[in-house]
Design a protein around this nucleic acid. Structure first.
Length: 284
RNA sequence: GCUGAGGUGGCGGAGUGGACAAUCGUAGCAGACUGUAAAUCUGCCGGCCGAAAGGCCUACCCAGGUUCGAAUCCUGGCCUCAGCA
C-alpha cells in the first residue's frame, strides 16, 4: 500500500521544519496541505518555509484571484503524491487545514459537485430561515442530518441546496493510502507566545506583500490598516497575532476529533528523534 | 480656577425612572464543520446553587437623598477629557 506521512497540527508548531528533516532522513518530498500557502507568493504573509534541498509541492499553485477549494486541492494533491510514489520516495503531507487532510484521506462523495454560481446568486439574498425551508423541501434527509449550528449557517445551507439540486454524479476519488498521522502541538499559552514571535518576524516583509483584493488571509486587514497609516505597527502586530492564535484554537478543535493522529509536544527536546523512531517503525 | 462634555461589565459602547444582571460589538471559553475551511456558523460569557426552569447575592465612580421602585432624578465629593485662563 502507498505510504503517506502526514504532519499536522495548529499554526506555529514547526510542522514544516520537522517535515524537512524527515524528508532528508527518509528520502521524502513535501506536499503542502495549507489552504493559504497554495497561493502564489505571499511567503511572509502565509508563512511559507522554502527549501533548496527538498521539493515542496502545492505551494504557488493558484493565483490569488482564482477560485481554489478542497476539491482542487484533493485533485492536485493526489496527483503530486502519485508522482512522488513513482519516484519511489516518501510523500510527506504538511499542513494545518484539517478539512483538506480529511478530504485527502477519506472519500467525500459530494466534493466533486461543482458550485452553481447562478443558484448561489439567488440563494445569497435569502435569510437562513428561508434557506432552511428550501433545503427541507429539496432534501429533507440532509436537513435532518444537520445540527443547530449548520442549520443557521447560510453558507452550509446554500451548499446543501446546491448539492441536492445538482444533476452531476461525479465519482469522487477513493483514496487508499497507508497514512501515518503525526500531530504537533503544545500548551496553548506557549503556543500563543510562539505565534506572536513568528508573526513579528514576518511583519515587515508581509507588509510589502499585502494589497487589496486578496482572498481571506489572516493578517491582511491589520497589515493594510498599518500600511495606510491607520494603525501603528504594535497595534497591527497585536491584532494579527491574536487572529493567528484564535485560528490555532479552531484548528485544535478540529484535530482533537481526528483520532488517527499520534500527538507530540512541539517543544520536546528530542522531538525529532521521537518522530523518526515512529516513522521508522512504520515505514521500513 | 472657570466653562462644557463625561465617568456603565476585560475593552469599546447603548440604555437616561419600572419589561436591567443591563442591547450590541470585541476579547475570552466551549463546540460544529462532506467544493469559500486562515472560511463560515452555533452556544456560554458578574458571583453562588441548579441538568433546566428558576432562585439568592453583589452591581452602572463614591457618599447621601427623592421615590412603591434609580444605571437613569436631586445634593455633595472624587476623577477624566476639551476649550478658556
Amino acid at each position: 500500500m502507498n505510504k503517506l506521512l502526514i504532519i499536522c497540527g495548529p499554526t506555529g508548531t514547526g510542522k514544516t521544519k520537522l517535515a524537512l528533516t524527515l524528508a532528508k532522513k527518509f528520502n521524502g518530498e513535501l506536499v503542502n496541505a495549507d489552504s493559504r500557502q497554495v497561493y502564489k507568493g505571499l511567503d511572509a504573509l502565509t508563512g511559507k518555509d522554502r527549501s533548496n534541498e527538498v521539493s515542496i509541492w502545492l505551494y504557488d499553485v493558484a493565483a490569488t484571484d482564482e477560485v481554489f477549494s478542497v476539491s482542487h486541492f484533493v485533485r492536485i494533491a493526489h496527483h503530486a503524491i502519485g508522482d512522488v510514489h513513482k519516484r519511489e520516495r516518501l510523500p510527506i503531507i504538511v499542513g494545518g487545514t484539517g478539512f483538506y487532510l480529511r478530504a485527502l484521506t477519506t472519500a467525500i462523495d459530494t466534493i466533486a459537485i461543482p458550485p452553481n454560481p447562478i443558484l448561489r446568486k439567488t440563494l445569497n439574498a435569502k435569510s437562513p430561515e428561508a434557506l432552511g425551508r428550501q433545503l427541507q423541501r429539496v432534501d429533507q434527509a440532509r436537513w435532518g442530518t444537520m445540527n443547530e449550528s449548520d442549520r443557521k449557517n447560510p453558507r452550509r445551507l446554500i451548499r446543501a441546496i446546491e448539492v441536492a439540486m445538482s444533476e452531476s454524479h461525479v465519482p469522487s476519488i477513493r483514496p487508499s493510502y497507508d497514512a501515518l498521522w503525526v500531530g504537533l502541538t503544545t500548551f496553548l499559552p506557549v503556543l500563543k507566545e510562539r505565534i506572536a514571535q513568528r508573526v513579528s518576524g514576518r511583519f515587515d516583509k508581509a507588509a510589502t506583500e499585502v494589497r487589496e483584493g486578496l482572498p481571506p488571509i489572516l493578517g491582511v486587514d491589520p497589515l493594510l490598516s498599518f500600511v495606510h497609516g491607520e494603525s501603528t505597527k504594535e497595534e497591527a502586530l497585536k491584532e494579527w497575532a491574536q487572529a493567528e492564535y484564535q485560528y490555532a484554537k479552531r484548528q485544535m478543535t478540529w484535530f482533537r476529533k481526528e483520532k488517527r493522529i499520534r500527538w507530540f509536544d512541539a517543544l520536546e527536546r528530542n522531538l525529532t528523534e521521537q518522530v523518526i523512531d515512529v516513522v521508522k517503525a512504520w515505514y521500513t
